[in-house]
Design a protein around this nucleic acid. Sequence first.
DNA 1: TAGTTAAGTCGAGGGTGCCTCGAATTAGCA
DNA 2: TGCTAATTCGAGGCACCCTCGACTTAACTA
Lengths: 188, 188
Amino acid sequence: MTDPRRRRPRADARRNYDRLLAEADAAFREKGTDASLEGIARRAGVAIGTLYGHFPSRRALIGGLLRERNDALFERGEELLTHPSAAQALIEWVRAVVEHAAAYQGLATMLADGLDDQASELHESCVRMTGIADRLIANARAAGVLRQDVTGADIFALMNAAAWIGEQMSREQADRLVDLTMGGLMAT
Amino acid sequence: MTDPRRRRPRADARRNYDRLLAEADAAFREKGTDASLEGIARRAGVAIGTLYGHFPSRRALIGGLLRERNDALFERGEELLTHPSAAQALIEWVRAVVEHAAAYQGLATMLADGLDDQASELHESCVRMTGIADRLIANARAAGVLRQDVTGADIFALMNAAAWIGEQMSREQADRLVDLTMGGLMAT
DNA sequence: TAGTTAAGTCGAGGGTGCCTCGAATTAGCA
DNA sequence: TGCTAATTCGAGGCACCCTCGACTTAACTA
């Protein structure tokens, strides 16, 4: 796929790319996902056109920011698939995703949209998240520890809702929502 | 309070006020709570300054829009306080608030903020909502049909989370979240 | 090492939206 | 009919979004 005769990427481009990611992370942490892109470019010491050169949209920028994080998340997911307690594994996965999705104010909404929107840079990771959830649900059901009528969509909804609560209220309240709800979903 | 020597309000002002509310309702339904205010003024056939004359902020406009709706909601709340089944009453109240809060995309977020923010035009109604929830919770607890560790904050969180899910995904998914969670909260 | 060239950078510019404020208008009243 | 306070108007300053053509420069090559 990669043509070896192609020039190696320019050093300044790489530098700007990294700088933009770093400043974007800071800005999104401070102001949420609709922080000013011009402000980010400014903080990165780069013209606005350069930002758009690297990231054609706000979503692309956030996608870039999440890529690194995603690796760790999905690694954890694979791990959980072999967890001895299916019930515990599912709860842990929900918690992990909630934490992931609460990185920036507004991220939960983007992820919720991302599942449906094929064109979203976040689509693929949303699909992977639900994929792992589906497998964990199947495990839990097979083990008879999860109510039969609980769907992957229910869990995805809960994950997003809790992440949103985490943004709006507090991490603690989000955890409580997850615990209370999951408690109800577990088979008696 | 009302000085009888004061002039009666101008007819054009009243007309514009009503027109603005009507167009704002339409716009917020179509585009969510961050629809363009200039667009609303335009649709109402009024200059932007006139809109700001009547509603000094977006929140004030939404507050005006909700005032009518609120009356019906709180009437329902009072009714539920005398409902024979404390458990059923609480669930109904959650459902009613969720429906109320899902009127416009973005409203759930504003309401969640409104509870903390004294200055918000939505603050008072948020307080009333939780007030009714608190009384219903007390009833349910007294009847022994609700887990002892469930707080008003938990219910408020659930209401908002479900309303948000309703905006992002679907009304059905929101209902499922409420049913599944409330099912878990009820004492066995 | 100088020249070539494509990749990358720049930032002005056109568009939209927010909100303010002083000037102009007008409905209610006497 | 005229007075006056309430209301309306919309230009204007600001911030942000995003595009695009001109310019610059790092990587390659002879």
